[in-house]
């Protein structure tokens, strides 16, 4: 199988706390991989490790055959990312913010308009970023990730702060990206209902451990095998997480 992102026993420890525990994920080229887990499951930390923002305590990973830290600049040139909250220069307009990123990436000028149009921010491009609403900041962050249409997108809860129509719009945009320009998307969320509508494959993370990896059909199949109803995947996700939490409590008691 052609995996564009593959991690091997990736682990991140902060003193006594293990944020990511031996996680091995496999993201197929040209697919949308939904990274699911409750808050604090380790989704953002895993994504930060993939971007070189934080160093793994153990394990390794490859992105398009390249490794950190040796290929840091080459890897970052291929990835459009959006982690946690949108990051922007408050003193610059939306367009000027994208221009800074464009210059760093050495892209053509028209990529700014392309990115603004993709996220529906064209008419607000000349407004100062500090005057944007939360949803507009979110869109600006997404535009920054999409600038130059990078082959890999790492998006950490990109619909946070958006209204229902904004969520719908961004979801449709993310869903259309692999067909639009042949990219691979790794997207995180704590809502299976959201991921279900766009992802080809999913990975379920809880307390830093990968509980499930596979397609949505695989998840339905394993739900049926475990005697759960496969009609409502949200319930399946919650019961997987609850089972893991109960097992953790049991282990802690012993």
């Amino acid at each position: 199988m052609d995996y564009i992102i593959a991690t091997e026993q990736l682990t991140k420890k902060y003193k006594n706390f293990t944020s990511v525990n031996h996680v091995s994920i496999h993201v197929r080229r040209g697919s949308i991989y939904g990274f699911l887990g409750p808050n604090g499951a380790g989704k953002s930390t895993t994504m930060k490790m993939l971007l070189g923002l934080t160093a793994p305590t153990k394990g390794r990973f490859t992105i398009d055959g390249k490794q950190f830290p040796g290929d840091r600049l080459k890897i970052l040139r291929e990835i459009g990312s959006f982690i946690e909250a949108p990051s922007f220069y408050a003193n610059l307009t939306g367009r000027e913010n994208l221009d800074v990123i464009r210059r760093i990436l050495g892209l053509r000028k028209n990529t700014i308009e392309d990115a603004l149009e993709l996220v529906g921010l064209s008419e607000f491009g000349d407004r100062l970023a500090k005057k944007y609403s939360l949803g507009m900041k979110q869109r600006l962050g997404l535009a920054g990730a999409l600038l130059g249409r990078p082959p890999i997108l790492i998006l950490d809860e990109p619909t946070n702060g958006l209204d229902p129509s904004g969520i719908h719009e961004i979801r449709n945009l993310v869903k259309s990206l692999p067909d639009l320009y042949d990219c691979t998307v790794l997207i995180s969320s704590h809502m299976l209902s959201e991921i279900e509508l766009m992802a080809d494959d999913i990975g379920i993370l809880n307390h830093g451990r990968l509980l499930f990896e596979g397609s949505l059909d695989d998840l339905r199949h394993s739900a049926r095998q475990a005697g759960m109803s496969a009609d409502n995947l949200e319930d399946v996700f919650l019961s997987i997480v609850e089972q893991d939490n109960a097992a953790r409590k049991q282990r802690a008691k012993l």
Binding site: G52, L76, I79, I83, E84, S87
Partner: peptide, 9 residues
């Protein structure tokens, strides 16, 4: 605006 975080990425 956490712009420095974007610079690291």
């Amino acid at each position: 605006g956490s712009a420095v975080k974007k610079m690291y990425m």
